[in-house]
């Protein structure tokens, strides 16, 4: 039992180390700022001005939504990216043939990227508020970090679903982008839920980020962590539900891929 746990942890840690290396093999401080921070800041600015142009004119709304998405992307895409990379280098079948726990295998790859995403998100929050002149209460910052982490977790759950699709389908980048766009559109990131058609607003309740973004906005408006506990709980629950679905799907698709010989659809 303990050995099994240890083995899982080792797979988890080693995979993490690998993706950490892959991530930071080429990242230096300049690249970090250039490639990770600036795109998020430009995204925040773009949507804030789109908000002004459309007469919604609430910079805080767009700052919070887009800064949070910065934390969400890595967990969402990381694992699917790993799978398609492995497919490209023809190592995917080697991974699948190994007896390692799938959860440790994929989650280990995702973790360093997700943590990095949290850091990027915090910087995006700070930078975006400076550029747009949005005041964030200093006391809200620790609670915001918690919200960011919870949102990143929820997105990692959805990321597992995405990864399972990646096992089955070779155009996983397309699916990843579809999910990303859908979140931008429907998860209360850039369009207030009140402006969405009812059916879309209903779907939004089941998406990651929706509740996290709402919690973050309340925090910026002066609420305390305890006030948004319900929203955070919902975000956590949604993330866990997706994670379960994702793991089950990975198992099922793996079996199917072995039957249908679609693993090496390079």
């Amino acid at each position: 039992m303990i050995r099994a746990v240890e083995r899982r942890l080792r797979v988890f840690a080693f995979g993490g180390l690998l993706s950490y290396r892959a991530l930071f093999g080429w990242v230096n401080p300049y690249v970090f700022i250039g490639v990770m921070v600036i795109p998020d800041l430009t995204q925040i600015v773009f949507f804030a001005y789109l908000g002004r142009a459309t007469g919604i004119g609430d910079d805080t709304f767009f700052l919070v939504g887009n800064a949070l998405v910065a934390a969400a992307i890595p967990g969402l895409f990381g694992m699917a990216d790993t799978i398609s990379d492995e497919r490209r280098t023809h190592t995917l079948s080697l991974l699948v043939v190994s007896p390692a726990s799938r959860l440790s295998l994929f989650l280990g790859r995702a973790l360093p990227i997700a943590l990095n995403g949290v850091a990027v998100s915090v910087i995006a929050f700070a930078g975006g508020s400076l550029i747009l002149g949005v005041k964030i209460p200093l006391t809200a910052i620790p609670a915001l970090v918690v919200v960011i982490a919870v949102t990143a977790f929820a997105c990692t759950g959805l990321g597992l679903v995405n990864a399972s699709i990646g096992l089955r389908q070779r155009e996983s980048a397309t699916i990843s982008n579809l999910i990303f766009y859908f979140l931008l559109l429907a998860a209360g990131v850039n369009v207030p839920l009140a402006l969405l058609p009812d059916w879309l607003a209903t779907i939004a309740q089941g998406l990651p980020v929706t509740h996290g973004a709402e919690a973050a906005r309340e925090l910026v408006a002066g609420a305390r962590l305890a006030d948004v506990a319900g929203l955070l709980g919902a975000e956590l629950l949604i993330g866990a539900a997706y994670a379960l679905v994702g793991l089950a799907a990975i198992r099922a698709f793996e079996l199917q891929a072995r039957r249908g010989a679609s693993l090496e659809l390079a």
Binding site: L50, T54, G55, I56, L185, N190, V191, L195, L196
Partner: peptide, 9 residues
């Protein structure tokens, strides 16, 4: 789509 929702005013 996003513009459509946002421009609704």
């Amino acid at each position: 789509t996003m513009a459509y929702f946002l421009f609704r005013g």
